[in-house]
Design a protein around this nucleic acid. Structure first.
Lengths: 208, 208
DNA sequence: CCAGTTCTGTATCGTTCGGTGCAGAACGAT
DNA sequence: ATCGTTCTGCACCGAACGATACAGAACTGG
């Protein structure tokens, strides 16, 4: 019985996400959001309650549609060293591709740096997503360890370092997208160098 | 013959820096800056021309008084693997110390993520400072390489990864200061593991 | 067709924003 | 002491901010 919405929520959120990504939270005005979404304030407030509500929707969508897909292959149960390296090289390629158009890093990393100190919701979301990445990376390293691809323990330590390096690359993207891409590729190279390098693999390769 | 300024410029900039560091650029209002510095707008505008002028002064001071000193030991000519590890552990210790009070990362990293896309001056400054870190880290690795402490090439690649990991830790500081500290310590551990690990050091230790 | 609800556009709310004008106080040079 | 300059506090500017009120259009269920 209610009049149905005449616009697509997802499309609007995607447009809003784009603006928040490019300009950050504080510097994005309602006028910007109206222009980007093609909706007026009434519709935005009807759908999202507040600027912050729209921001939350944008972050959720970003995590679901941009961040999570990139992580998918790494989170698959069989992922090992090769998948971790591929994840990092994929990141590098994506940054390299975006180098021409101004690179704007990662929306969530940007938001964490800007507003997480006074936005508990974002802090929570950001922390949980970082943990998800951390777990995916550590999982791949554990798998590699179990397979004998690498031998030293230090899996969690290395996972933390690699995850942080990616975050650093995403900040660097604002300054120099090519350098940011190199960071990812260098990290991939380092990860690949762990293959049997340190610790003189005990039992040799288990696979034929 | 002019009436001399009755306040200390450095003290005022330091106070302003503190606010920008904590709240970011956009979210910091002139009222905030008046309160933090104890000065009123007229004096601020007289001394710094604009909010952005004060921000620039704050960034300059931050780089000189907060960031650069931390880098000093690493930039000294004799710095090698031990100094790099010490730099990283120092960062970790500092993050751990700030964990109780809310951690706010690095002012410049925050600013890069927030406004560098539309602030060419900051982008320039940020890039040049990142290069300085990069050079310091690479220099230490080169020294270590020359001394035979490590053997694989890949010095530049590793320098980029380490620098990025530190930047990632500084973003992480907003979410979980202890985790951020661990990242630095883990990276230090990884750096230390490069000592003679990969490539079977050729000539043994040159020092007695 | 009607009743009931929701959507959407305009117009506007009060607040806060960065920035200025101005008058008088405070100082150094002479 | 006087002049010239600068500093400092207060009031205030127009613009932009996020958010809302309200009226009329649009739609569904009956």
């Amino acid at each position: 019985m209610p009049r149905p919405r005449t616009f697509d929520l997802d499309v609007a959120v995607r447009a809003a996400c784009d603006v928040f990504w490019r300009r950050g939270y504080e510097a994005t005005s309602l006028a910007d959001l109206e222009q980007a979404t093609g909706l007026n304030r009434s519709s935005l407030y009807q759908a999202f309650d507040s600027k912050h509500g729209l921001f939350q929707a944008a972050v959720r969508q970003y995590l679901d549609e941009v961040a999570a897909p990139r992580l998918a292959a790494l989170e698959s149960p069989g992922a090992g060293l090769a998948e971790l390296a591929a994840y990092l090289r994929g990141f590098g390629a994506s940054l390299r591709a975006g180098a021409a158009a101004g690179s704007r890093g990662c929306m969530v990393v940007n938001a964490i740096a800007e507003v997480s100190d006074r936005d508990a919701w974002l802090r929570e979301r950001g922390a949980s997503y970082q943990n998800r990445i951390l777990e995916a990376v550590a999982g791949a390293l554990r798998t590699a360890d179990r397979r004998g691809e690498i031998t030293t323990g230090r899996v969690d330590q290395r996972a933390r370092m690699v995850t942080a390096a990616v975050m650093g690359a995403l900040v660097t993207a604002h300054l120099d997208a090519v350098l940011a891409a190199e960071i990812c590729e260098d990290t991939a190279g380092e990860v690949e160098s762990w293959r049997g390098s340190a610790g003189h693999r005990p039992g040799g390769d288990l696979r034929p």
